[in-house]
């Protein structure tokens, strides 16, 4: 009895320590974020006030309203949703399938393909932009959703990520299913994919996020205002001669929200994943 009581107390102490550590870290993480929110509510000259005020004298909420009124940000927002959702959907399939293939099968050229996919990550995007643009132009995809979606339809990062997670899943499950007469697609979709759900949600989050923030490629591939995505809309706040920091911060904060929502929903998958691994026993 006494031993159990002790254990319980130890757990409580460790819980407290965890909370304390997390809280300290949270403060460090939150500080720049709070600073950005505080800046977003200031007037442009207040930003550089010394000493800095965390709470502005007057909260300028209009910084959040004005940009959405004057610019075509609503359309940009819609374009971003269309592009990011489509790209993410495509990637869920292409990356998980390729990752599964590289992790769980042996065939001629597998390692070569895998290394080649990894190698594509190692070239700075800036230089391949021109030939990529040339190709997309030849397909007639400039100023179309296709031009924004298809080149981003798979990702070396995603393939690599999924491969590494599939490696952690025991192959015996596949063997067992094969003996039961399950088809290869069946094994993949019904057995393997559900097992890497936490990894899939990670993939969804990262692909969605990357595309939501993607700037350089849309900048090149789009010239018509009605096709521009949110980061391009936000960039039009930048001026050669001046930056309205409060409005820039406000718009950026607002544009971050959708990704945070995706993340918050997806991170529940982790907890489900946890329950699942508990069930395995």
């Amino acid at each position: 009895m006494a031993a159990r009581g002790q254990a319980a107390r130890r757990i409580k102490i460790s819980e407290l320590a965890t909370y304390a550590a997390l809280a300290i870290g949270a403060l460090a993480v939150a500080m720049p974020f709070l600073y950005a929110i505080s800046t977003s509510l200031k007037d442009p000259f207040e930003v550089f006030e010394i000493p800095m005020k965390w709470i502005p004298a007057v909260a300028h909420w209009e910084n959040y309203v004005k940009p959405f009124k004057t610019m075509g940000l609503a359309r940009n927002f819609l374009n971003s949703v269309i592009v990011a959702v489509s790209v993410t959907t495509l990637n869920v399939f292409t990356c998980s399938m390729a990752g599964y293939s590289f992790a769980k099968f042996r065939y001629w050229g597998r390692d070569f393909f895998f290394l080649a996919v990894l190698a594509t990550l190692m070239v700075p995007l800036q230089v391949i932009l021109v030939p990529l643009f040339e190709l997309v132009k030849r397909f007639g995809w400039i100023n179309t959703y296709r031009g924004l979606i298809i080149p981003a339809g798979t990702s070396a990062f995603g393939v690599f990520l999924m491969r590494q997670y599939f490696l952690t899943v025991p192959s015996e499950l596949m063997e067992a299913a094969r003996i039961d007469g399950c088809s290869e697609t069946g094994i993949f979709f019904r057995i393997m994919l559900p097992l890497v759900k936490p990894a899939l949600s990670t993939l969804v989050i990262f692909i969605f996020m990357n595309n939501w923030n993607s700037f350089l490629w849309p900048l090149l591939a789009v010239t018509r205002e009605e096709m521009m995505t949110l980061p391009l809309g936000i960039a039009s706040f930048e001026s050669t001669y001046s930056t309205n920091y409060p409005q820039l911060m406000a718009v950026s904060m607002a544009s971050t929200l959708p990704v945070l929502i995706v993340f918050f929903t997806m991170q529940r998958q982790f907890i489900e994943g946890m329950a699942l691994s508990g069930m395995k026993s």
């Binding site: 959907t89 959703y145 096709m227």
Partner: peptide, 14 residues
């Protein structure tokens, strides 16, 4: 639905 959105987006031409 997601697939449909993706296909629509890809199919849409300006």
């Amino acid at each position: 639905i997601l697939v449909l959105v993706a296909l629509l987006a890809i199919g849409a031409t300006s």
